[in-house]
Design a protein around this nucleic acid. Structure first.
Length: 646
DNA sequence: GTAGGGTTAG
């Protein structure tokens, strides 16, 4: 028998300690039943305490859970409906609970409903009502309603309350009204840290991140939240280097980062493929005791998977004390990137066994795992299960994955039929997946048909022109290639430069095709010459099918030699020693020749390729990982001899 | 008699 049951056995249990000891809904129901039996529920104070428990349960305070508990909130809604004339406290509790609820729009709407109802019943809202009414307006992105509430705030004289002010700023930020936020802020005489920090969100929301940074630099005081807000803003807007730079400054200023900051730092490392910096962030997290935290843990899994170390990702995932649907999905997506199709499907099964329902993006991840792992039948089966067992309408990504699945397996006609039979209008990503399959299986006839549709759908997207001329090139139809280049020039489309990133001693180096700007470019080109001679001696012939121009074979090879991934490989080999790992992150897919070449390296290195996106199409990122086993000079000839002997 | 507030994350 627990404390609650024991106390309930007393003649007149004291309510407050009883609720403090209560650990969840079953015990709460016992207490509620007792209150109804003994008629103390009709006491407004007692009923208020019960509601307060539902909205802020003591077991949710440490660690704080910003969204509250949906089950308890629904119970609160029911309890509230049993009360004849609720008081201000009870209305505030309901408005607070609904405004904070995690899922769906109907809860924030509930806040507005209770706010109107209390006034109809003659109750005056107070300064503690407004922060949550405004939060609800922000979450609903109702600028009109928000402005009306702002008017009522002024009429009732709460406009000088700092909490109300920051709620107003936040509401305008969420509704995208930077002007209103700015004029409000300018009217505040001595804004505090929180108000300044809210302004960072305002400018972040409307995309003016450099202005947000200017505010950050000039504000009189900064706290941890200010720092993490700025780091998060950089990450959200794709300024990953700036995010990591700011984290560095933060450490120099001896400010201890918190969980949200670290989640963003890890996410930036993931996008940059910056494994070393990610590892350092991991150390920092351990040293500062920021684990176990569900979100930070998931961010670590994501970082290790995207940086190419799926083994670490798995071991961290397995040790997470708590996992939700998103941590499972992140793990499945990580396995998909590394081609572990069967394992990804196993993890989906385990997730379902843990009673966690897969969501739409979970299916995107597992379908892409099937397509990268060649599990065609399993993929088709899961696609059906998604519709049948989970009542989901597949989205564009799911159709894209399926086209990719069929296309990669060479079932091109089936894939095309599937696209034509889709219940929603296929977009460029779906056609792009089919075009990619045409290139792999060298089907110029279908490729031309699909490419025409694509370049009409997205005339400014360079990737599809490139892919289409690749289709022509693989089929040796050079007139087609020249034609495509002509159309591109006519339409003003430029091939967006592919780049390769490589991290050395914590610095990320960027290479683009034919790039001469790197300070060590001379040595890099020397290194490349040496490598290419050596691999040529073991039988490497440049795969020139992907060069866009109709030029002589030798020239094509030298065009290939300038590919950014090769510059990065050469640089990596220069800077590392035996046993080191070389990781290269690409913004576009790796060209076939560079892929072949990396495979060629397997003579003295272990190579794997990882695509960072759900399904391959022009513009996806690919990670090339080279593991050096030994010094090229000694090892290569030896291995070759051994191979020859075998 | 009650107690309740603003900014940051995968």
């Amino acid at each position: 028998m627990g404390a609650v049951e024991r106390t309930l056995g007393h003649k007149s249990p004291r309510l407050v300690p009883l609720l403090e000891a209560c650990s969840g809904l079953p015990q709460l129901k016992a207490i509620h039943a007792h209150m109804l039996r003994t008629h103390i529920f009709s006491d407004v104070f007692c009923a208020s305490r019960l509601l307060a428990f539902c909205v802020d349960p003591p077991h949710h305070r440490h660690p704080p859970q910003p969204h509250g508990s949906p089950l308890l909130l629904d119970y609160a809604l029911w309890v509230f409906s049993l009360v004849d004339s609720p008081n201000l406290f009870m209305y505030n509790a309901m408005i607070r609970g609904c405004a904070r609820a995690a899922a769906g729009d109907h809860y924030p709407l509930g806040s507005l409903h209770f706010y109107c109802q209390m006034q109809r019943r003659g109750l005056q809202p107070d300064n503690l009502t407004y922060p949550f009414v405004l939060k609800a307006c922000g979450r609903l992105r109702c600028r009109g309603t928000g402005r009306q509430v702002h008017g009522q705030v002024v009429r009732r004289g709460f406009e000088l309350d700092a909490h109300v002010q920051s709620s107003l700023l936040h509401m305008y930020a969420s509704c995208g009204d930077a002007c209103a936020a700015r004029s409000l802020f300018d009217g505040i005489e001595r804004p505090d840290v929180v108000l300044w920090t809210s302004m960072i969100k305002v400018y972040n929301q409307c995309g003016d991140i450099s202005f947000a940074r200017r505010l950050f630099d000039i504000m009189p005081e900064r706290n941890v939240v200010t720092w993490s807000s700025m780091i998060c803003a950089y990450t959200k807007n794709g300024h990953f280097d700036e995010a990591l730079d700011l984290f560095r400054v933060m450490k120099l200023e001896n400010i201890k980062a918190n969980e949200p900051a670290m989640a963003s730092v890890l996410s930036s490392c993931a996008s940059l493929g910056a494994l070393q910096q990610g590892e350092r962030a991991h150390d920092y997290i351990v040293q500062n005791n920021l684990l176990p935290n569900l979100i930070v843990g998931t961010a670590l899994v994501n970082m290790y998977a995207k940086c190419g170390d799926v083994g670490r990702a798995i071991s961290i995932f397995e040790k997470l004390p708590e996992k939700d649907w998103l941590s499972w999905t992140t793990m499945i997506a990580g396995l998909a990137m590394h081609g572990y199709g069967t394992m990804a499907v196993d993890y989906l099964c385990k997730m379902i066994e843990e009673k966690l329902a897969p969501r739409e993006i979970t299916f995107t991840a597992v379908l892409s795992a099937c397509s990268h792992g060649g599990l065609v039948e399993k993929g088709l089966e899961l696609f059906e299960s998604m519709k049948k067992d989970y009542a989901m309408d597949p989205g564009m990504e799911h159709y894209g994955c399926l086209v990719d699945l069929l296309g990669r397996a060479g079932r091109l006609e089936e894939a095309e039929k599937f696209v034509l039979g889709m219940p929603i209008q296929p977009d460029a990503s779906v056609w792009g997946a089919l075009l990619g399959a045409c290139r792999i299986h060298r089907n110029a006839e279908m490729g031309e048909r699909v490419g025409k549709i694509l370049t009409e759908l997205q005339p400014a997207h360079s990737g599809y022109y490139v892919l289409m001329s690749n289709v022509y090139a693989t089929a040796n139809q050079w007139e087609g290639v020249t034609g495509m280049r002509h159309v591109m020039r006519e339409r003003g489309v430029n091939k967006s430069p592919g780049h390769s990133l490589i991290e050395m001693e914590g610095t990320v180096h960027r290479f683009v095709m034919g790039d001469k700007s790197h300070p060590e470019i001379g040595k890099i080109e020397e290194m490349w010459k040496e490598i290419s001679q050596r691999i040529r001696s073991v039988g490497y012939v440049g795969n020139t099918t992907e060069v866009l121009f109709d030029i002589e074979e030798e020239e094509k090879e030298s065009a290939l030699a300038k590919h950014s991934e090769k510059l990065a490989v050469a640089f990596g080999l220069m800077k590392t020693g035996p046993g080191d790992t070389i990781r290269i992150i690409k913004n576009l897919r790796v060209c076939e020749d560079c892929h072949e070449l990396s495979k060629g390296f397997q003579l003295w290195a272990s190579v794997s390729m990882v695509s960072q996106s759900a399904y391959s199409r022009p513009g996806t990122s690919v990670v090339v990982i080279l593991q050096q086993f030994g010094d090229a000079d000694d090892v290569v000839p030896k291995i070759i001899e051994e191979e020859a002997a075998a």
